[in-house]
Design a protein around this nucleic acid. Structure first.
Length: 728
DNA sequence: GCAATTTACTTTTTT
DNA sequence: AGTAAATTGC
């Protein structure tokens, strides 16, 4: 039996109430992951088969970490639990059952970009101007309709609004094209199982029987499709346990329905509700600050989160001059924190609303030699060269994949231009075939020039040659010789530019990841590899083994904790974010702010800039309303020296130029230098004895001093290595 | 059909 | 300001 001694009574109740519906309303830092982990381990220790447990998490990272923890409690049987994100679990199920809904198990998964490209193609063919509707907008509207399960039969026209006629045309063609390409988008991974289960009751029954225990993490961020899937899958035993916190619902924009958690007990009248209200993570100050802000939300489950942790340091609100000053300030604070020896780089997170904010910090941290890692932004698998290779691989396992076909048919260049491709599209459309399978038809065509025919035919032969080979057990070797044959690596190598080398290396890295996957998953196929990497999130790739400060968006930070958190850019328009012509959802932005604050264990810094650069222009900023809402008993407000000048000069901020920066940075370096060295400080050196600092330069690891020792010798020293002690 | 130059667009957040 | 798309020139 699992030892439950380190759980509190509520946590224990959530773990041991194994039968019937359970809703765990788990406040930030209240041990939600602990409960899920122990609940699963507990179930297994009762003799319940791990393969009858379905655990749905929000990220792959959460799933693999939880699995690891369960493995420590119950051993290898943890491997048989069905655990993963909604998308990855149902992608897997769909691979098995694809033939029942007119797909093959090699179906492609289209990401948002690929969906958007399909829509662009449709709009071009339908002669719909992109000025009127942006493809991106249409993609997002279609996606929302799909994950809200709105179909033509139930209100699609109304949902699409004024321009519904054209949108519906595009929508229907989009669905048709994906089907023809044997491809699914992210929403299909949730919708197709619903279709499958509705039309194949015996299949549904199979899974209902198998998954006798269902657990859902981050339930507040499930959407309608996910909710409906759960309702279908829950069998008559109703052993479902959902864990979540309505105050941390931050994915409404992606279709998440807070109602799922708010009305859980309406869906399951006999629900046992367990509230976890003791926070084990943060200091009293941090919790008080977070609470004073979130209580301004009207639409929420009332709860009182409390902690027996210490009062802790006050929360710091720091006014900065602009985003550069903000980054400098954070860098200085981090340097000072690290130099105390009590905080490691990996204990620190810098959280922001938008990915674009990372750049400043990246540049500054580089200069200050602060080790850092950025989660998100331009992720590896989204790089152009990587996507090119992946498109080849997708086409090899699924030759009907028109998107992938279009991406690589003329890359590297093989004399197949736009005109020829348009021609092929016409033939494909006429015969209702995929582009690849239409090549033979094009070759038959009398009107096509011999040169074009030859080019198409050799491409066709190339792909055909590898179509079956790629299903071999050792697909890695097949891919390697395929890539050799298309000479794509040479293209990048020959470029000779730094960019080309980087791309070359990225492809090599991709190869390594394929090889690694093949070795680690001997019973999986290339299709599985492609599927898994399509569903990887930025956060999944972050290994916290590295001792680096981590920079990420507030969204990515959900579920994580750090000793020290810098929540930056607390400005109106940025947090809460406002986009032109968009009505911001203040309550969701407030929850986002709340999520940010509650990541912090010991220290929380909230910063904002008086001026911020946007699209190359500097705009004056107003501090976030969330800062106004904070209970001021728990904060210290300060300003950087540059911001002080700004305040004094009263709006005449344009006079602050490079010189001011350099001056101020010099002053601040001294103030924040690791040993608190100042010119004039008296120091002790192991060899040279006592001396006086007469010059100081740089900070952090790069800090240099000139010390005049009692003997009269002046020495240039690196503070990092000199082992100085400050006497005065 | 490709390279160089100009223009347009971007900054929500992501499976 | 930085990047991707579009247009021009060869």
């Amino acid at each position: 039996m699992i030892n439950l001694d380190n759980l509190n009574p509520q946590q224990r109740e959530a773990v041991t109430t194994t039968e019937g519906p359970v809703l765990v309303v788990a406040g930030a830092g209240s041990g939600k992951t602990l409960v899920l982990t122990y609940r699963i381990a507990y179930l297994i220790s009762l003799g319940i088969s791990p393969s009858s447990i379905l655990a749905l998490t929000f990220t792959n990272k959460a799933a693999s970490e939880m699995k690891e923890r369960i493995r420590k409690l119950v051993g290898k049987s943890a491997d048989y639990i069905f655990m993963g994100t909604f998308h990855s679990i149902f992608a897997r199920i769909l691979r098995h059952e694809a033939h029942l809904i007119g797909y093959t198990k090699e179906y492609s998964i289209y990401d948002t970009d690929e969906s958007e490209n399909v829509i662009k193609g449709i709009m071009k063919d339908f002669n719909i101007s992109e000025n009127h509707f942006s493809p991106r907008f249409i993609q997002s509207v279609i996606s929302k309709a799909k994950n809200k399960l709105i179909s033509k039969e139930n209100g699609l026209e109304k949902f699409f609004g004024v321009y519904n006629k054209k949108l519906i045309e595009i929508y229907e063609e989009y669905i048709r094209r994906l089907k023809n390409s044997n491809a699914m988008d992210f929403d299909d991974l949730l919708i197709k199982p619903i279709e499958l289960f509705s039309s194949n009751k015996e299949i549904l029954e199979k899974y209902r029987e198998r998954f006798n225990y269902i657990l859902v993490d981050e339930y507040q961020d499930t959407n309608t499709a996910q909710y409906y899937l759960l309702k279908m899958l829950i069998n008559e035993n109703k052993n479902i346990c959902c864990v979540g916190d309505d105050a941390q619902s931050i994915y409404k924009w992606r279709g998440a329905e807070v109602r799922n958690i708010l009305e859980f007990n309406k869906d399951f009248p006999e629900t046992k509700i367990v509230r976890l209200e003791q926070n084990y993570r943060s200091t009293k100050s941090i919790l008080a600050v977070a609470d004073s802000v979130i209580k301004n939300n009207v639409y929420q489950i009332p709860k009182t989160l409390w902690t027996s942790n210490e009062e802790g340091d006050k929360v710091n609100i720091i006014v900065c001059f602009d985003e550069r000053d903000e980054a400098n300030l954070v860098a200085r604070k981090i340097t000072a924190l690290i130099s105390t020896g009590k905080i490691r780089p990996r204990d620190i997170a810098v959280l922001y609303r938008t990915n674009s904010q990372s750049r400043n910090f990246e540049e500054t941290f580089l200069r200050s030699s602060i080790p850092y890692i950025i989660v998100g932004g331009i992720e590896f698998y989204k790089r152009k060269e990587v996507k090119d290779i992946l498109a080849y691989l997708k086409l090899l396992v699924n030759p009907k994949d028109d998107e992938s076909f279009l991406r690589i048919v003329n890359f590297p260049a093989r004399g197949i231009g736009d005109v020829s491709i348009e021609n092929l599209k016409l033939i494909a459309n006429r015969n209702e075939k995929s582009l690849f399978h239409s090549i033979p038809d094009l070759v038959e065509d009398k009107d096509v020039s011999e040169r074009i025919k030859k080019n198409f035919q050799s491409f066709y032969n190339l792909i055909s040659k590898y179509l079956t080979l790629v299903h071999q057990k050792n697909y890695y070797e097949v891919i390697k010789s395929f890539i050799d044959e298309i000479k794509i690596l040479q293209v990048f190598k020959e470029e000779g530019t730094e960019d080309g080398i980087q791309r070359y290396e990225n492809i090599i890295q991709l190869f390594n990841s394929i090889q690694e996957f093949q070795v680690n998953n001997p019973d999986k196929s290339l299709t599985d590899y492609l599927s898994e990497i399509s569903l990887i999130a930025d956060i999944d790739n972050w290994e916290d083994r590295k001792n680096s400060v981590v920079l990420m968006t507030l969204h990515a930070a959900k579920g994580l904790e750090f000793k020290v958190v810098f929540l930056v850019g607390c400005e109106e328009g940025l947090l809460p974010l406002k986009r032109d012509g968009d009505v911001e959802d203040i309550e969701e932005e407030r929850r986002l702010f709340y999520v940010g604050c509650t990541r912090a264990m010991k220290q929380l810094y909230l910063t904002y800039a008086r001026n911020r650069n946007r699209f190359g222009n500097s705009y004056p900023q107003v501090q976030s309303r969330f800062l106004d809402e904070i209970d001021k008993n728990h904060v210290i407000v300060e300003a950087t020296p540059l911001a002080e000048i700004y305040l004094k000069k009263n709006n005449n901020y344009r006079t602050i130029i490079e010189d001011d920066y350099n001056q101020i940075e010099e002053i601040e370096r001294i103030n924040y230098s690791s040993l608190n060295l100042k010119p004039g400080s008296i120091v002790q050196h192991d060899v040279f004895g006592k001396g006086r600092v007469i010059y100081l330069e740089g900070y952090g690891d790069h800090q240099k001093v000139i010390v005049e020792f009692k003997s009269g010798i002046k020495k240039h020293l690196m503070v990092k290595y000199a082992n100085l002690k400050v006497i005065k």
